[in-house]
Design a protein around this nucleic acid. Structure first.
Lengths: 334, 334
DNA sequence: CTGTTAGCGCCTTCAG
DNA sequence: CTGAAGGCGCTAACAG
């Protein structure tokens, strides 16, 4: 068993309480004592036991982050941001991946409760998760990432998806495209629904025709598969807008395999601007979302909430995504 | 404060010990009592406190996973594998990303010790990390992932990098290539060194000429930048082998931008076979490593070690990577 | 099969 | 500024 605060105390010839003070409020202990304790700690290789600390103090200094797909670079960036911020504030981040599976999500939530996390960061992928309601009941602060909170009792850091959908279509219209394929994920995902609303709104404004296509999961393979449908569809689509980059990359691959030229035959736009999009063989035009920043800010907000308790004011922060133009789009040639 | 085992006991009209038994050895409690306890737990929404449990039992049922770059899909797959296995065995996985920064790595190691992890999974990116030695001193089992342990006192799950390097060159030689660019990362990384040894060995056997190029970090951008050097080099290289897929994807982009055709002008091979390689616009031939399996197996092994203590036999498991042929390579046309 | 009890390591009053 | 004592929630004997 590892050394405890008591071993340190006896070796430094002081009381345990003094060692505890040294650890938590060093200013309250005299210079001389401090030195004795320091060397005792070094000699014994003492590292405080987090469980004991949590148990006694009532605060775990641990925040949970639950993402639907750690395989998606967007979320790994979110996780990096949240992790770095947590570290800087001496919090531990517990990262859980639900793989878009509600069962796994619930299970992770249970573990997080067992760990008595003091705050949760989550990108909810399903409506009305029992687990999230549970967190609420327990008064564990929760902030949404990439999804606006409906309630003012809760913080969120999200993106303006309506605006994102709208600006992609607007941009394509400005290039002369009048018939656009829109490849979306399930409308049950709030982000997808908002982007679609933006798309349709802009289409109306710009007098552009939208052909809707749908994928069940927003992964590359799904994009690859749906591309067939686009190619076979009778309408003469000249541009394709996908609800995320993974899907767009899959579509891109399918198009190229079918001998299509990008951006000549089709203009292609993705969403998220993950790193791979810039380095794709045909660099992808995309709607950029500051993933790292979302994670970092969300972590900072929840830490503030945890530390300031009732004084804390909930905020719903919404960023505007940004169109990043690369080689996969160009003006329509008649 | 949340409900405790005591609240459950009093509501169910039993002793705390019985509730504890119910939680940990349900078979020792009678059917009737069990039901009473179950409903009390449900009524009170009781969830045991992990910290208290750990403190008392001496085991945290938490394993740490420290990776050098969570942004690399290879490692996110490793993490998925380890996380799933941990979950299945009722362990918690604490995932830490060092971003290839020794300082961050040491800091995370400290946190992991505070958490009293019962085992560590790590892909060491630097030699002689103080933190790892520290873990040893504390008798915390450590298993290496993707890196063979030198000591028989330690387990590891790794890949045969020599074989991987060798088989890529052999394959290219079989296609008729006699002059190959080999783009490697720092030789201080054990994997890179072994792959290079394999490359050189095979080159000698096959009578193939190797042109070495080097990147400082194994990311896409680095590959993109090094491609210039390859194009400008005087030797008439016809094939390029990169030490990982990220680098290869960067090279690919640079080549295409310079009007080169793949695989006609250059055959290109990567390493790792990350998901994006299959969906790259020119699907990449690659040396596949079963990342998910590495993570899952390593987690299983460390759990066995934790649970079987001294009886446990350390193993150094080495997988052979597999050549996956896709569109980026073809026989050399004279 | 169930109840009682003594801590696990630490923090926090509260006296000195 | 330092020291003694109580207890956070739980588990593991042990006694009944």
């Amino acid at each position: 068993m590892a050394n405890s605060i008591r071993d340190v105390a006896s070796r430094a010839q002081v009381a345990v309480g003094t060692v505890s003070n040294f650890l938590n409020r060093p200013d309250r202990v005299a210079e001389a004592t401090r030195k004795k304790i320091e060397s005792a700690i070094a000699d014994l290789n003492f590292v405080p036991n987090a469980s004991a600390r949590h148990l006694r103090s009532g605060s775990s200094r641990t925040i949970g982050l639950l993402v639907p797909d750690i395989t998606n670079p967007f979320f790994t960036e979110v996780a990096r941001g949240a992790g770095d911020t947590a570290s800087e504030n001496d919090y531990t981040l517990l990262l859980c991946n639900s793989d878009e599976d509600p069962k796994k999500e619930e299970r992770h939530l249970k573990v997080l409760i067992e760990q008595r996390i003091c705050g949760l960061l989550i990108t909810p992928s399903f409506e009305g998760l029992a687990g999230v309601a549970e967190l609420n009941r327990r008064n564990i602060p929760t902030t949404f990432i990439d999804r606006k909170a409906e309630s003012l009792e809760q913080s969120s850091v999200s993106m303006d998806d309506f605006y994102g959908g709208k600006s992609a279509v607007k941009y394509l219209a400005s290039l002369g495209h009048t018939s656009i394929a829109w490849v979306n994920g399930p409308l049950s995902i709030a982000q997808c629904a908002s982007r679609e609303a933006g798309v349709m709104d802009s289409a109306k404004e710009q007098n552009v025709k939208i052909n809707k296509f749908q994928v069940n999961q927003m992964r590359s393979q799904n994009g690859y598969e749906v591309a067939k449908n686009i190619l076979e569809s009778t309408s003469q689509v000249t541009a394709i807008f996908c609800a995320n980059d993974l899907v767009a990359l899959g579509v891109l691959r399918a198009l190229l395999e079918n001998g299509k030229k990008i951006p000549t035959d089709y203009a292609l736009i993705g969403y998220d601007d993950i790193g791979f999009s810039a380095s794709a063989s045909i660099p992808l035009t995309s709607i950029a979302q500051p993933a790292y920043k979302l994670g970092a800010l969300a972590a900072q907000m929840i830490i503030n909430e945890v530390e300031n308790g009732k004084k804390f004011k909930h905020e719903q922060i919404v960023f505007k995504p940004e169109l990043v133009i690369r080689a996969s789009t160009q003006a329509l040639r008649k």
